[in-house]
C-alpha cells in the first residue's frame, strides 16, 4: 500500500514539476532560449511572497495577486531590454547571461534574507486531506497544484492553437525573420513569452514555498527538475511537459520509498537516473517531435 501511496503522491508532485517546467518548455519552443535562472526566479518569487505577506499582513495566497504580475512584468522587461540582445544562432551569450543572472539572484537573496530556510504558511488548507484508506490520503493542496498545472498547460495550448497572438508565437518559432515580414514584432513576442514564463514559474515558486521550506540556494535544483521534466516529456510539447513532470514526480516519490525500504538511492537521485535512461533510450522525449 505504501507503494500505491508513493505513486499517487508522485503524480501530485508531478503537477508542481510540470508548473516549473512550463516556462522553460515555452521559451525553448518559441525562441530556443534556455533560461538558467529559471529555478532561482521561482525562489525569488517565494521570497517576495514572504516579504509581502509580512508587510501587508495577508495570507501568502493573497500575495500571489501581487507577485505573479510583478514577475510577469519583470520577465517582459528583462527579455525586451536584456535577453533579446543575447539571442542568436550562437547559444553561448544567452547561457552566460542567464547563468550570471542565476548566481546574482542566489547571492542577492542570501544577502537580503540570509541562508536560513523560510516557509509560507497558508493555514490549515495546506494540511487538509481526503483519506481513501488508512495508507492513502490525498492532500487538497497537492490536488490544487496539479489542477493549476493542468489548467495552465491546457490554457497555453488553447492560446497557441486558436488565438491571433498564439499563431504569431508559432510563426515566430518557425522562422522569426519571415514572421517579421508578416508584421510580427518578434522581439515583442519573445518578451511576452518570457512574461508568461516568469508568471508560471512564480506560481510554481509560491506553491513550492507553501509545500516545503526553501532557501536562497534552492533554485538550481528546481531548474534541474524542470529541465528533466521537459526532456522526459519531449522538447517542444506542452503535453509532454505535463507527462514528464508526472513521471519525474513518481520517480522521486517511489525513489524515496525505495530509500526507506532498502536504504539505497534517494528520491532526487532516482529521478535523475530516470531522466538519464530516457535520454539514452529516447533522446527526443516521450512525446517529442524529434527535434532538439
Amino acid at each position: 500500500m505504501e507503494w500505491v501511496n508513493a505513486i499517487v503522491q508522485g503524480i501530485l508532485l508531478g503537477g508542481l514539476f510540470a508548473l516549473f517546467a512550463t516556462g522553460l518548455s515555452l521559451a525553448f519552443g518559441v525562441m530556443r532560449f534556455v533560461n538558467l535562472a529559471h529555478g532561482d526566479l521561482a525562489i525569488l518569487a517565494a521570497f517576495l511572497a514572504v516579504s509581502f505577506s509580512a508587510t501587508l499582513e495577508v495570507n501568502p495566497f493573497v500575495t500571489m495577486a501581487l507577485v505573479v504580475p510583478i514577475m510577469a512584468l519583470g520577465g517582459y522587461v528583462i527579455q525586451r531590454f536584456g535577453f533579446n540582445w543575447s539571442i542568436g544562432t550562437d547559444p553561448l551569450p544567452s547561457i552566460l547571461v542567464t547563468f550570471g543572472l542565476a548566481v546574482v539572484i542566489q547571492n542577492a537573496l542570501l544577502e537580503r534574507y540570509s541562508a536560513d530556510s523560510q516557509g509560507l504558511d497558508i493555514g490549515t488548507f495546506e494540511t487538509r486531506s481526503i483519506e481513501f484508506t488508512d495508507d492513502i490520503a490525498v492532500g487538497w493542496f497537492p490536488v490544487l497544484i496539479l489542477g493549476v498545472a493542468v489548467v495552465v498547460l491546457v490554457g497555453l495550448q488553447l492560446f497557441l492553437s486558436f488565438t491571433r497572438m498564439g499563431r504569431a508565437f508559432r510563426a515566430t518559432a518557425d522562422d522569426p525573420s519571415t514572421a517579421r515580414l508578416m508584421g510580427i514584432n518578434d522581439r515583442n513576442i519573445y518578451a511576452v513569452v518570457m512574461a508568461i514564463a516568469f508568471a508560471t514559474v512564480a506560481v510554481a515558486g509560491l506553491f513550492l514555498g507553501i509545500r516545503q521550506t526553501f532557501g536562497p540556494t534552492d533554485g538550481p535544483a528546481q531548474l534541474i527538475f524542470a529541465f528533466e521534466a521537459v526532456v522526459i516529456g519531449g522538447l517542444g510539447s506542452l503535453w509532454g511537459t505535463l507527462l514528464g513532470g508526472i513521471i519525474l514526480g513518481v520517480a522521486q516519490t517511489v525513489g524515496n520509498q525505495v530509500d526507506v525500504e532498502f536504504n539505497v538511492l534517494s528520491g532526487p537521485l532516482f529521478g535523475h537516473l530516470i531522466f538519464l535512461v530516457v535520454l539514452a533510450v529516447r533522446p527526443s522525449g516521450l512525446l517529442g517531435r524529434g527535434r532538439g
Binding site: 525553448f28 538558467l36 547561457i95 532538439g292
Partner: peptide
Amino acid sequence: RLRGGYFAIG
C-alpha cells in the same frame, strides 16, 4: 544528445 542550453543543464 543535447544541444546548446540543454547541453549546459544536462
